[in-house]
Computed example of a mutant assay.
Amino acid sequence: MNVRTGGPRLLRLGERDAAARDTIDALIGRAVRGLPGMRAPESGDRFVFTLRDDPPVAAGTSLRYAAIVALGARFLPADGQREALGGDSVDDLVGALVARLEDTGPSAVTSLGDVALVCWAAAETGHVGLETALARLAAADPAGGGPVFTVDAAWVVSALAAVRDAGGTPEAKEHLERAGRRLLDGLRGRRLYGHAVGGSGLVPRYRAHVGCFADQVYPIQALARLGGDREIAAADTVAAGICAAQGAGGQWWWHYDARTGDVVEGYPVYSVHQHAMAPMALLDLADAGGADHLDAIAKGVRWLAAPPETGDTLLPGTEPGEPIMTWRKVARNDPRKAVRGVRAATTGLRPGWRIGSLDRRYPPVAIDRECRPYELGWLLHTWLVPSSRE
């Protein structure tokens, strides 16, 4: 199937930057061709955790990644869904995911983020299992439940906002109001989000001030979908912070000081941040009435073709026999993640304190030749939206 979207987001990108549009258009085709090879064998509800190098070698499974794939693939036409999902429809996949939420045995789903993603997918697709998913989400995220990771908190809001848009229930509305307050309160007194909201104890003290890129984009998206003046203003604040920090080459950096907005450690730079997650959050914000950051989006997409760190592309060829995914990231030659730990500790003691010799000792020249299904799911979710959320 030839996926040529012509959707409003891709058209808007093309008006600003034709090369960036062409890159995204090509990646959408790669995603549809590549996803069948990421389906976990003999599994109706999971995709592999990762697919490495050439020839592709699969490892692990992930229900979370399957839910994200469902959120993206739902925008494909029926034949495209079956091509991308190895013969299944998105409704089939979501049904299998909801069924997994009912498992109370050793393989029961216990992650709040996983439950929220399945609930979100069920709401967006109008699946008959939404009531089951909502009940599991309420049980996984009780009132007064203590601190949660920021990403999970954001996914809860996005899921419940989708439930609200689908008609909702009084109980789901109350849960959404509570989850929205928790997410807003997590930004209080800070310029960006840390790694947890709703209390302390989940993150070691030495890095409690640090938030990763995911801790910024998922709340931007959730607050935009929640709507309201306070929510949009908060999302605008976080979006302005990550855009101000964006690298000269278009890099969306990895770790930030939530107190100041400064970059703590830039690497790894992930391809999914460049082509999907940053555009996803920033476009949702613009559609909700927030600021326009299309230039930053285009700049981030351009980085994929020629990252200055390596001189090599993150977009491997598509000739017969070659891999068709996007390589996962550019990273430092730092297998023990020493730079990340040192910079979290030093900036915790004094904001902005950097040991420059670490950049020379651990240069960012390594390309991680793997791809994960959620990267392709978020790509489809971001760019195949048929109309804006106005």
Score class of each variant (00 low, 15 high):
R207C: 15
L226S: 03
A224W: 00
L223Q: 03
Q216A: 13
Q221N: 08
R205P: 00
H209R: 10
P219S: 09
A208T: 06
Y218W: 08
A234H: 12
Y206Q: 12
I220H: 10
G228Q: 09
A208S: 15
A208Q: 13
R225I: 00
P204N: 13
A222R: 04
D215T: 12
P219Q: 10
D215W: 05
I232E: 01
A222Y: 03
P219C: 08
A208K: 10
A214S: 10
Q216S: 12
A222G: 07
G211A: 11
D215Q: 12
Y206L: 13
A234Y: 09
F213R: 13
G211M: 10
F213T: 00
L223Y: 01
R230N: 11
Y218F: 08
P219H: 08
Q221G: 04
H209L: 09
R205I: 09
V217K: 08
V210F: 14
D236M: 06
V217G: 08
D229G: 08
V217Q: 11
H209P: 08
P219F: 07
D229N: 06
A234I: 03
G227Q: 06
P219G: 07
A224F: 00
A222D: 03
P204Y: 05
I220A: 12
V210N: 12
V217Y: 12
P219R: 07
P204Q: 12
Q221R: 10
G227H: 05
R207S: 14
R230L: 15
V210W: 15
H209M: 09
R230Q: 13
L223H: 03
A222M: 06
A235S: 03
P204S: 14
Q221V: 01
I232C: 02
Y218R: 03
Y218G: 01
A222T: 04
A208W: 08
I220C: 12
P204M: 10
I220L: 13
A233V: 04
D229S: 11
